[in-house]
Design a protein around this nucleic acid. Structure first.
Lengths: 207, 207
DNA sequence: GAATAATAACTGATTAGTCATTAATTGTCA
DNA sequence: TGACAATTAATGACTAATCAGTTATTATTC
């Protein structure tokens, strides 16, 4: 497993294409983007792209993988920290929302859009991103339950609910909701507050 | 504003096309679906479609409008009921998840997929669906705050968080997550339980 | 000069939307 | 009523444009 100069050049060119693809996809979406578009932005001939990616789908696979790498890196640092759940949750969201800049959010939108209607990509997305991400998150969650920081809850479902909240907010923002756009940066503070304090206060009063 | 027999026939044919479009879109997505596909399923000639819809986008507008009609009908019945927030929340989710059958979920996926990458559709989606839905939900929420059933919380953001949870779960299911698929029907019970009891129990213990 | 990488012209297939033609329906009046 | 004209709806062949992927050729590197 030695990386030669060839491999490095190869990787650099691949990344160059992926960068260009990100730009073009963000502008036109996956299907409307053409190989020529991507080649033009990358400053290479369109045929060259096929020396590095088997087909158009493979370019999106490449982007998915890159997104996944940073995601799992970020997930891993969590989970063993010595905090309450609300602190963990707030920290997780803060981290996640901060790391997810405009470009990443736009790219996520492209991927979601295509995964929803492309069976081959969906298959890849499931095995390459969804399942590993769930697995890591479930492990982190479970360890907090084991450590007595969380009540014995339904870990798989809980993980899905939390990620659904994040995912849904990203999508609603991509839909162009101005309220979310304007107040995006305050979400890491507001969201746990809503979920924890908002609901708790109410529930404490009611019975 | 009288509806003639002409209008009714016109509407029937429109619905016939929309039904066919739903089937085809669910199978191939919006972009991969062709006008010929839809015409074939509807049992008419492809040219006929253009007598009823200006273009392909307009067909999706039509589907969006139909989805929105049922949605706002369902939203309106809520909000004035005399319950605690957790009951309201549970009932809302139950209702929402029950009303959203496989076909509606699939259609929502198609619309989301296209709205994410099609500026014209996004514009329509915002004004026809998103803004009215938020407006109704915010009003319902605010009335519960005014009635003292909820603490004075940030209504617009709260509404967005709740709908994000629902939206995110739908999308994760469409991604093909088997856990969610298997346990979909238990969500109306589990989700409020997770959000309310799960978090509260923990929070009560910790300080 | 051999091997590898890049090029861009080209192909084959696809498809949204058009439009001239045909069919069906409605209205008129003897 | 029934003949026929006028209006409206339906048809499907056609067009013009697009684009993913191929490949023969040229350039670069070693």
């Amino acid at each position: 497993m030695t990386t030669t100069i060839q491999d490095q050049l190869n990787l650099a060119r691949k990344n160059q294409i992926l960068e260009a693809a990100t730009t073009v996809f963000a502008e036109k979406g996956f299907q409307r983007a053409t190989i020529k578009d991507i080649a033009k932005v990358a400053g290479i001939a369109d045929g060259t792209i096929y020396n590095y990616f088997q087909n158009k789908n493979a370019i999106l696979f490449g982007l998915m993988d890159r997104l996944n790498e940073t995601e799992s890196r970020e997930l891993q640092f969590q989970g063993t920290s010595d905090t309450t759940f609300s602190e963990f949750f707030s920290a997780y969201l803060k981290h996640r929302l901060e790391q997810f800049g405009t470009r990443e959010i736009a790219l996520l939108g492209i991927i979601i859009s295509e995964v929803l209607v492309n069976a081959e990509l969906r298959q890849q997305y499931q095995t390459r991103i969804l399942e590993p991400t769930y697995a890591i998150a479930e492990r982190a969650f479970q360890s907090m339950v084991d450590a007595g920081k969380l009540p014995a809850m339904d870990v798989p479902i809980s993980v899905r609910i939390i990620s659904a909240t994040f995912l849904g907010l990203v999508i609603q923002r991509l839909f162009g909701d101005t309220t979310l756009e304007q107040r995006w940066d305050s979400l890491p503070d507001v969201l746990p507050q809503f979920l924890l304090e908002g609901l708790i206060h109410q529930e404490r009063k009611s019975p």
